[in-house]
């Protein structure tokens, strides 16, 4: 699928990160990260396992607190928000988990309804049903509405996880390893879905991955985490046009795998 063009507003920074540091004990994961993400952009964050890619998006959504630095999302400094303000912000930021994180005691319908009924007041049953059906149509899985998460394949679970975040029509989407553990065809479906979300919902996205096919297919811009910092940013070709051994190893091993 060809990526949509002309959708990025370079004058509108929706996520701005400055001097971000995060350690776990003596494990220094992020060592001064600076990053701007623009309205409508698909930014891919690349890096080896354990380099802090997932930590970065958990910091953006307030699941973790930074040791130092600032994270500004949609004009709000995440670390200074009250619980209520953070919840309001979270409604504008969708988070698709690596494990899909579907509530396994609920049906797909109940999974999708959950964020809606808890956060949007005065919705009629018909409006809830319509929103659930539309979200499922968006990801092409209308037939699963009454199934349990355990009855779905890995790819279907990923798509339902994305549908659950889309139901609140977020301005920003954060994808944590969207293609991890999936076969190439299902991965391609997920990549297409990420691009459709960008086009249809005009959403800004950060895609965390170490899958270079996913990065190439979905990313308008790539940022590579090396030694706790973004040392390389640009298009796919720009990021890998270097003799840096760490970057070259990442490129070659990815395609050999």
């Amino acid at each position: 699928m060809k990526k949509p063009e002309g959708h990025i507003d370079h004058n509108n920074v929706v996520i701005s990160i400055r001097g971000l540091r995060k350690s776990f004990g003596d494990l220094h994961v992020l060592r001064g990260v600076d990053l701007d993400v623009y309205q409508g952009e698909n930014l891919v964050v690349l890096g080896r396992s354990g380099t802090g890619k997932s930590v970065l998006i958990k910091l953006i959504v307030g699941l973790l607190r930074p040791d130092a630095g600032t994270i500004n999302v949609l004009g709000q400094d995440v670390d200074t928000l009250t619980v209520k303000e953070l919840d309001q912000l979270r409604l504008k930021v969708g988070f698709s988990f690596q494990s899909s994180a579907l509530y396994d005691s609920m049906t797909i319908r109940e999974n999708l309804e959950f964020p809606l009924v808890r956060n949007v007041r005065n919705l009629s049953r018909q409006e809830i049903n319509r929103a659930v059906e539309e979200s499922l149509e968006d990801v092409g899985l209308s037939q699963t509405i009454n199934q349990m998460p355990s009855e779905l394949s890995g790819g279907q679970r990923k798509r339902i996880g994305i549908a659950r975040t889309l139901i609140l029509k977020p301005d920003i989407m954060l994808y944590d390893e969207p293609t991890a553990g999936l076969d190439p065809i299902t991965s391609n479906d997920i990549n297409n879905l990420i691009n459709e979300v960008q086009e249809r919902h005009r959403a800004t996205s950060i895609i965390i991955t170490h899958d270079l096919t996913c990065a190439k297919e979905t990313g308008d811009r790539l940022a590579m985490l090396l030694d706790g910092r973004f040392e390389r940013q640009g298009t796919f070709d720009e990021v890998f046009a270097t003799n840096d051994e760490r970057v070259q190893q990442f490129y070659h091993y990815n395609f050999i795998e």
């Binding site: 619980v83 919840d87 979270r90 409604l91 988990f97 396994d104 005691s105 609140l168």
Partner: peptide, 21 residues
């Protein structure tokens, strides 16, 4: 077991990011 399973499969985090305590 139920909460432990929800914790390790990130369901508790998913609840938190969907603005549910």
């Amino acid at each position: 077991a139920e909460l432990g399973s929800m914790k390790v499969t990130e369901q508790i985090d998913a609840m938190e990011v969907s603005a549910t305590n």
